[in-house]
Design a protein around this nucleic acid. Sequence first.
DNA 1: CAAAATACGTAACATAAGATACAGCGTCCC
DNA 2: GGGACGCTGTATCTTATGTTACGTATTTTG
Lengths: 274, 274
Amino acid sequence: MISSIAELISDRIDAMPAGERRAAQTLIANYPLTGLKTVAEFSAAAGVSSPTILRFVARLGFQNYPEFQSALQDELAAQLQSPASRTLNPSSAGGAVSPMLEATLDNMRETFRHLTDKQLADIAARLAERRGKTFLIGGRFTDPLARYMAAHLALIQPEVYHLAGQESIWRDRLIDMGKRDVLVIFDIRRYQESLVRFAEKAHQRGVQIILFTDQWLSPIARFARHVIAGRTAVPSAWDSSAALFVVAETLIAAVTRQLEAAGAKRIRDLESLR
Amino acid sequence: MISSIAELISDRIDAMPAGERRAAQTLIANYPLTGLKTVAEFSAAAGVSSPTILRFVARLGFQNYPEFQSALQDELAAQLQSPASRTLNPSSAGGAVSPMLEATLDNMRETFRHLTDKQLADIAARLAERRGKTFLIGGRFTDPLARYMAAHLALIQPEVYHLAGQESIWRDRLIDMGKRDVLVIFDIRRYQESLVRFAEKAHQRGVQIILFTDQWLSPIARFARHVIAGRTAVPSAWDSSAALFVVAETLIAAVTRQLEAAGAKRIRDLESLR
DNA sequence: CAAAATACGTAACATAAGATACAGCGTCCC
DNA sequence: GGGACGCTGTATCTTATGTTACGTATTTTG
């Protein structure tokens, strides 16, 4: 079975006329980049004319050039999203312990790869500054993450609230929210209508929203000041929230550290209690 | 020094108006693929208009959109050619983030290294067999994990209950528990007296206890039929429950798979609902 | 060696892409 | 509360990209 376009090419390259073969070789030489450029650039790189490129693409079975490019992009997306870390991963040598674990580790690496220190520091700073209140809420499966984060944050600073229960209950809490407040929302597919509505209203009131979502971005991203996009794909019937969980823990640690550095009295009191 | 466009973006994202920030977040969320598509596709993905995308690109310092795309392609080319550079990305290269991530990944590997496939399979089988009820409970910080697991298990099988609220409330639930039932407890340092008492009483009633704890083992291990010891040490003021979280997800996946294999009617019904 | 078939490039075309002008709107500041 | 500023989207325009038609060159085959 032929999975990648590169395979497809090397499979048919022998049956190609000279010009198209040059196109094929040029593409393979630095795959897949040349194929993402324009026909004119591709043809120049291969030293052939534009129609030759188009005929080459047609021979591969694509209707037109954009379709060919989309296929390349999809392939690239798949590559970038599940890094080939299987090769450079020490634990994978141990056998089929758990594909689940491997996927989860990949997800975490990939999630953090798209997350800069600065982003995390900014979000931590926003959570640490005590100008307003902090609210946390999550969807059906992610609400426990909101609870987990709330449990920690509530300990190191005042005015941290987890929004639980029915929609009507948290909707009424909107009255307490304003520009100085922060709302942390967890929402992964399938995105919850009620959360989107809630986020929109909070946004209208000027609340700063920090969104934890998956790589396809919840519609709440529209209203969010900060967006954390975690990878969720695992070999399971369910999506994995593990990557988001680790980001949450990382943020908790960062906030704690910032407050410690700021010499917050509460932290000292807390330490004396421990 | 700013080397990659991703860095450039996260550096300036704060100085951007809302619409352009959405563009930035969308691009970062699955970088750099969105930037290689057309302006129209990009704008649709970000939920903004085409001009906003162009203004976003202009703000980054590019003269026009093609120039921006070329820059992305060059960056991609460099990445693809030296695979090593993919591992040492901006976020993991240095800074305060990566020690946390590294420790967490190590914890997971180590946790699963001490966990055999058979153990996991046994526990999953125990959870999947529908002879009695399943109860879940956790400590101060780990109760969200119990909730998370309960939210999934309750969907794929009946009679799954998360024990919430005050101690007196769950103590009264002991009446409903018997030999055929399973109790999943999450308890890491500092171990909670109330949980230990509860576990002991449940054990006396013949309840099968599955314990999620840390490597120093909660005293509840005395009463537990199955013990999962996760690594919790991270460079933070708090312990990490991430490894336990991943084990929980793994078990959820395994139980789901077993029930699917057993052809449970509920699973089929569930799938028709999705 | 000649004729046919195929391959290839030039040039004109149509389409879709990126760029721009402008008006509406919200926001901030005085 | 009013005015100025800045942001955003709609509609229009321009550019350049992909596509096609056709003639020439090249190879293949009888």
